[in-house]
């Protein structure tokens, strides 16, 4: 164990951690952005094709629901390893934070899509009926009623998803993905540098707190109920 003065001298903390933090943030932001887009699309498809939705398609709904459930039932570590060939196909490599965006996104989309679906289901049917009576098409209903009315819930769901992604990204780091997880694993755990471990954990906690506070603020700002 080092003394306090030695903390700032440890090059892993002074030089390695900022890079690791940047990698973690890049992985999270990159996968969150793609997840937000794909998750909303899948969530809308799940909701609209459901028996009570505005475009019931029982077959499509069952297939899509099955795929989403499959994605959600696999532990992230196993999913990450299982799709290594796909990751190599998309990213050209399987190591580094860029490559990790692929499994992170695939792991998070089903999760977020379900949260989007739940938010959409909470939009009262009366509002949808009112728009339908104005002669709205299904696209109008989705764009002008369902998504805006569900926005506070979707934002809250995205916050939860981003925080889960930060957790996954640390796990990805442990198997070659870089970021805070990799630093904590290789220096903090394997080389017994407890200070590195503590610093990495503190950074993760701070990042998660910031995401939650920001997410709550945005959700409140878009909620006019």
């Amino acid at each position: 164990m080092r003394t306090e003065a030695e903390w700032l001298d440890n090059p892993v903390i002074t030089e390695g951690l900022p890079v690791a933090l940047a990698e973690t943030l890049a992985m999270t932001v990159g996968s969150a952005a793609i997840t937000a887009l794909l998750g909303v699309v899948v969530g809308v498809l799940l909701h609209n094709s459901s028996p009570g939705g505005i475009a019931p398609r029982p077959g499509l709904n069952r297939v899509l629901g099955g795929v989403v459930n499959l994605g959600r039932s696999l532990p992230f570590l196993i999913l990450m390893i299982a799709i290594i060939p796909f990751t190599r196909f998309v990213a050209g490599t399987t190591v580094g934070w860029r490559a990790m965006i692929v499994p992170l996104t695939i792991g998070a989309v089903p999760f977020f899509a379900r949260l989007v679906e739940t938010s959409l289901r909470e939009v009262s049917s009366g509002k949808v009926e009112a728009a339908t009576m104005m002669g709205a098409t299904r696209w109008d209903v989705t764009r002008k009623v369902l998504l805006p009315e569900a926005l506070p819930g979707i934002v809250a769901g995205l916050t939860t998803t981003v925080i889960a992604l930060i957790g996954y990204s640390a796990m990805a780091g442990a198997v070659g993905g870089g970021g805070l997880g990799a630093t904590a694993m290789s220096y903090g755990y394997n080389r017994f540098q407890t200070d590195v471990m503590i610093a990495a954990v503190v950074l993760l906690v701070v990042v998660v707190q910031l995401v939650q506070v920001t997410g709550d603020r945005v959700a409140r700002a878009v909620d006019h109920r």
């Binding site: 009262s124 009366g126 104005m134 002669g135 709205a136 002008k144 909620d223 109920r225």
Partner: peptide
Amino acid sequence: YQHANLLDSRTAADNVALPLEIA
């Protein structure tokens, strides 16, 4: 409707505008 069924995400003016946007 009995419970107006206005969109919470829109102002009063934007709620009135909705059928016109759709049209």
